[in-house]
Simulated assay, not measured.
Amino acid sequence: MERELSTAPVYSMGVAERLTGLTSRQIRYWEQQGLIRPARTKGRQRLYSEADIALLKEIKRLLADGMTLQRAKHYLAAREARRRARDPAEAAERVGLAPRVTSLYPLTHRAELLRLIDRDRD
């Protein structure tokens, strides 16, 4: 099973450069083009996560394989849309079908709780 990459923003621009082999100019340009969105500190310093670093490496590989920047952007957006479509909880939330109640109570009590909640809303 593949390990999920951390989205915690911890790497500075300099570390991102060293980890990816990219220049800060390339990274900033890809940000301007909407390919990556690093977190920012209150002082506006860019911070990159493990997932951001992996994305930068992937963009670098796609471009090295001959893909244009615009095509890479479309490819990554389509892949993200497919990933989200496969996540049932996220898909349900987008269309307004997310569960209304989460409970630590056993399932046998859940129907009663939902009935009481619905009664109070009327």
Score class of each variant (00 low, 15 high):
14 G>H: 02
14 G>P: 03
15 V>L: 02
16 A>W: 00
16 A>S: 06
16 A>G: 05
17 E>D: 01
18 R>F: 00
18 R>K: 06
18 R>V: 10
18 R>A: 03
19 L>H: 02
20 T>I: 01
21 G>T: 03
21 G>E: 02
23 T>A: 03
23 T>Q: 07
23 T>F: 00
25 R>V: 09
26 Q>Y: 00
28 R>E: 02
28 R>N: 06
30 W>P: 04
30 W>F: 11
32 Q>M: 12
32 Q>I: 05
33 Q>G: 04
33 Q>P: 07
34 G>D: 10
34 G>S: 09
35 L>C: 04
38 P>N: 15
38 P>K: 14
38 P>V: 15
38 P>H: 14
39 A>E: 13
40 R>V: 15
40 R>W: 07
41 T>A: 12
41 T>C: 14
42 K>W: 00
42 K>A: 10
42 K>M: 12
44 R>K: 14
45 Q>A: 14
46 R>I: 08
50 E>Q: 08
50 E>D: 11
51 A>V: 01
51 A>M: 04
51 A>R: 08
52 D>F: 01
52 D>A: 12
53 I>H: 02
54 A>I: 00
55 L>P: 01
56 L>A: 08
56 L>T: 07
57 K>I: 02
57 K>M: 11
57 K>Y: 00
57 K>H: 01
58 E>V: 03
58 E>N: 13
58 E>F: 00
58 E>S: 07
59 I>H: 02
59 I>F: 02
59 I>Y: 03
60 K>M: 01
61 R>I: 04
61 R>H: 00
61 R>V: 00
64 A>L: 05
65 D>H: 07
66 G>F: 01
66 G>C: 12
68 T>F: 11
68 T>Y: 14
68 T>D: 11
69 L>D: 06
69 L>N: 10
69 L>G: 12
70 Q>V: 12
70 Q>L: 13
70 Q>K: 15
71 R>V: 09
71 R>L: 11
73 K>V: 06
75 Y>G: 06
75 Y>E: 10
76 L>G: 08
76 L>K: 12
76 L>F: 08
77 A>C: 08
77 A>G: 04
77 A>Y: 15
77 A>S: 12
77 A>D: 13
78 A>M: 14
79 R>T: 13
82 R>K: 15
82 R>M: 13
83 R>D: 14
84 R>D: 11
85 A>E: 15
86 R>M: 14
87 D>V: 01
89 A>T: 03
89 A>H: 09
90 E>H: 15
90 E>P: 00
91 A>H: 08
91 A>F: 13
91 A>C: 04
92 A>H: 08
93 E>V: 03
94 R>Q: 04
96 G>W: 05
99 P>M: 05
101 V>N: 13
101 V>Q: 05
102 T>K: 13
104 L>C: 05
104 L>S: 05
104 L>M: 08
104 L>K: 03
105 Y>L: 15
105 Y>N: 05
106 P>L: 02
106 P>Q: 02
106 P>Y: 04
107 L>M: 03
107 L>N: 01
108 T>M: 03
108 T>Y: 09
108 T>W: 03
109 H>C: 05
110 R>I: 05
111 A>T: 11
111 A>V: 06
112 E>M: 09
112 E>K: 10
112 E>G: 13
113 L>H: 10
113 L>Y: 07
115 R>F: 09
115 R>Y: 09
116 L>E: 12
116 L>H: 10
117 I>R: 06
119 R>M: 10
119 R>Y: 05
119 R>K: 09
119 R>C: 08
